[in-house]
């Protein structure tokens, strides 16, 4: 059994006047080997959900289990945190070591894994960084490189589940591309990936499954296309659609008979269908 949320609710500052309900009775089952995207407007509880997944937060009610280990039980925490690696927004802000190698070795060392120079080079290669950085200071790298280093520093722990909060935000197109490719190759290696993103095109491209949150409630969870179809019909305030879905939506509104698609190729195919139909008449 991978990561399961069983009737999970979460309150901040319960019992005080500052009480905030962040999540409301969530039931979710994250499948292994898939990329799941969590979307929702600001304040919908996405970040809270992420921190519940590796036991940084404990549910106020309900239970979160990782491979049948409950996060509520303190004894399981170390094992759970090794399995589920959480990468926060702007992970480049958490770098601290004197050299890139030490940065890469920090996390694994805490879990009793030794990182040799060879292994460190491999990790750098995985995120597309040159091995000549190995002995330089992490603070000499550019913003995008720092981000990739921060991600690599977690990969050394060989997590089974990788949870990322906005992994590609504020990167240049090339930097984004590197991150996407990394996530795809991790998926191929059997890592279960969960990301939070505000960028719908990114979600449409990367994810197999999508989970929609709105003010702490689960609005939809399922296959990417089904969820986007649902969002096409029902507008959630603060959520946009992938740009291809918007194109299809406009075409349909203008009376063209096209099917909803959510990727570049499929959308072009649909448009060509219309064009060729017009040419025939």
């Amino acid at each position: 059994m991978p990561i399961t949320l069983n009737d999970v609710s979460f309150l901040y500052n319960p019992g005080t006047t500052l009480e905030v309900k962040a999540l409301n009775r969530l039931n979710v089952n994250f499948k292994e080997g898939e990329i799941t995207g969590i979307i929702g407007p600001t304040g919908s509880g996405k970040s809270t959900l992420l921190m519940l997944l590796n036991g940084l937060l404990k549910p106020t009610a309900g239970e979160v289990t990782v491979d049948n280990l409950s996060t509520t039980n303190k004894v399981n925490l170390k094992a759970i945190r090794q399995k589920v690696q959480l990468i926060f927004q702007y992970p480049e802000h958490q770098l601290f070591a004197e050299t890139v190698w030490e940065e890469l070795a920090f996390g694994p060392k805490n879990f009793g894994i030794e990182i040799t120079e060879q292994k460190a080079t491999l990790l750098l290669e995985q995120v597309g960084l040159s091995e000549q950085y190995l002995h330089s200071s992490p603070f000499e790298l550019s913003g995008g490189e720092k981000r990739r280093l921060a991600i690599a520093s977690v990969l050394g722990i060989s997590p089974k589940y990788l949870v990322l909060d906005e992994p590609a935000v504020a990167l240049d197109p090339l930097g984004k591309e590197t991150i996407y490719n990394l996530l795809f190759s991790l998926k191929k290696q059997g890592v279960t990936v969960i990301i939070v993103s505000h960028n719908m095109d990114e979600v449409a491209r990367l994810c197999d499954k999508i989970l929609v949150l709105d003010r702490g409630n689960l609005i939809a969870f399922g296959d990417k296309n089904q969820v986007f179809l649902k969002l096409l019909e029902k507008n959630v305030q603060g959520l946009s659609l992938p740009v291809y879905a918007e194109v299809i939506k406009l075409l349909r509104e203008r009376g063209f008979n096209v099917d909803p698609k959510f990727s570049l190729e499929e959308t072009v195919a649909e448009i060509l269908k219309v064009v060729q139909n017009n040419a025939k008449h």
Partner: peptide
């Protein structure tokens, strides 16, 4: 935030 991030990396 940093405490959480480093804890996730196994810091004690």
């Amino acid at each position: 935030r940093l405490i959480k991030a480093q804890e996730a990396r196994g810091a004690d």
